[in-house]
Amino acid sequence: MRADFAALIVACAAALFAACLLGSTPMEIERVLAALVGRGAPGDELVVLQIRLPRALTAFAVGAALGTSGAALQGLLRNPLAEPGVLGISSVASLGATGALYYGLAAMSAWAMPAAAILGALAGTALIALAALRTSSAVTLILIGVGLASFAGAAMNLMMNLAPNPFSLADMINWMLGSVANRSLLDLAFAAPFLLTGLGILFAARRGLSALTLGEEAASGVGLNLRRQRLAVVLGTGLATGAAVALAGVIGFVGIVAPHIVRPMVDHDPARSLLPSALLAGLILVLADIGVRLTPTVSELKLGVVAALVGAPAFIWIAMQRRTVHD
């Protein structure tokens, strides 16, 4: 495991560097290195520090947030198919963002859309948290999440249905497809406190996820405070996912795929799967975004579209591997 972990860190660093190196403006390694340490030509620094690096870091941060959230939700719900989307948190966050676009708030302030996405995620989180206080059943929680996701989807469709003009419709569609293009370090800085707080809460609660391997009844028996555990995971997930959606829109399935690959390497312990899942999901999105940028299409492919095209079949494959149905 230790060697796998070291390899993962090296791969992440290499991918982030590659993301700074590759692109439409060809640049040698020395020029990229010089720009990264602030000693490059002004043009190089603009391309590397203002365009490529923020974009790569955004992809990595979004991946890390979604990978950790997915791994934590899977541990909590004891279901390898759980992820922020399943609990409806991504959808409500996305609804917040689309709402900001629809009502023109996003045009009034650059902060409006990120704020709306995080508020949406927190609202979704609060609803799930309330439900979690009332029920001890994971199935009930998932079903509430499905209902929440359906409602948010319907509300978004309604807004598109009633879109006042083709421009705002295009804006909303662009947002819903999911992308990390044109993100600045400022965007990243705004999302970082939420994202890091969310990840901090999830990492602090990771040991309880191991106990939940035994099922909720036995987990309480070995000393887990079930309600507190559920609240911690839902809150951490809400913050991290809200920040991720604020940064990139909806990027699906990476929160399912990364923990699935990691799990056998950590003896299927949910607690130990969090950190590697964060790194791997970040790596996947950085690589996928490099692929998106280098693919010569008429208009640039959206990261969320590519993630879903690859991730959805993986989701189905993982679902079909399941031997038994747990509660």
């Binding site: 004891r78 279901n79 939940l212 391997t213 035994l214 099922g215 009844e217 036995a218 028996g221 070995v222 799990r263 003896d267 299927h268 312990d269 949910p270 747990h326 509660d327």
Partner: peptide, 13 residues
């Protein structure tokens, strides 16, 4: 120490 009636193991640990 409590051994409940249902003892589902979520993962193949």
């Amino acid at each position: 120490a409590y051994l409940p009636q249902n003892r589902p193991l979520a993962w193949p640990n």
